[in-house]
Amino acid sequence: MSTGIVTTDLRKTFPARRWQGWRRRHVAPVAAVDGLSLRVPPGQVTGLLGLNGAGKTTTIRILSTLLRPTGGTVTVDGLDVVDHAREVRRRINVISGGERMVYDRLTARENLWYFGQLYDVPRARLRTRVGELLDLVGLTEAAQLPVERYSRGMRQRLVIARGLINDPAYLLLDEPTLGLDAPIAHQLRALIAQLAADGVGVLLTSHYLAEVEQLCRHVYLIARGSLVAQGSPAQLAGQTVRRHTVRLVLSVADPAVTAALRALAARHDAELIVDVDDGGRPRFALRHPEDLVGVVVTAVVQRGATIVGLTVTPPTLEDAILTLTDPAVMAR
């Protein structure tokens, strides 16, 4: 029996219908996930990255039994998610960013008790588990207040606790830190790392790539429902040309400075874009794998020009995603 969540050639198409006059007509179905194979092993955090609409949420909904795949298979510790949906539901849970999925009229303690009953958590275990989770997310003091009196951050922390009520063997996190306050997001990241260290298999989608770089041992990058790259965050970033960008604004136009920068760009084989900013002042953007800010500033200052704006953008995983999922790049 294979452990972990394993998808093989996973496909999901949604029946699409469109209004045409008074009738709704079936049109060509839309593929949200298209032949995706991935593995979420226990005891580590696996990342699932992609632009909006790449199929991340659909994938998570299939893994959590909320959607049924159109093709391919998903197994959780060898159990098929379609044939053994109930058993799979006991082993997994989902935390989505935002404040949904809890009841306003119930207190935090009652919400957790309620979902614990639904998950059939053994009675004795549920009693201790609710207390543990309230401690974990820092809601012990507010545990007896109805959720409708909570702040957003408190509700989001309760949503996180709800996702852990059944001690899931696998946790699917769909943008879990979306909209969280920085300290809470920080705590959640620490919690995710701890859960993985304790043996939980975590699948994480996130817009915050620093988060992914920090937590994930393995990352799948998808676009239009298909896999485009995978590997450790470092490997993935290495697959693309990552470049520093130096942006420079001068007080007045000076042909000598422009000529010097062009020569500098040619010498380093860097990309140079020359235009003007909103104030009509000359602006230069220089892109190169190395950080050229030192030589650029020297060249400008030597010619007596005045720098009024200077920014340096280091390369990010985001560049990698954009490059790898850009259709133009993929076509090359």
Binding site: T65, L66, E87, R89, R100, V102, Q117, L118, Y119, D120
Partner: peptide, 8 residues
Amino acid sequence: EALFLSPA
């Protein structure tokens, strides 16, 4: 959705 996620 939270109800449908559960094995209840």
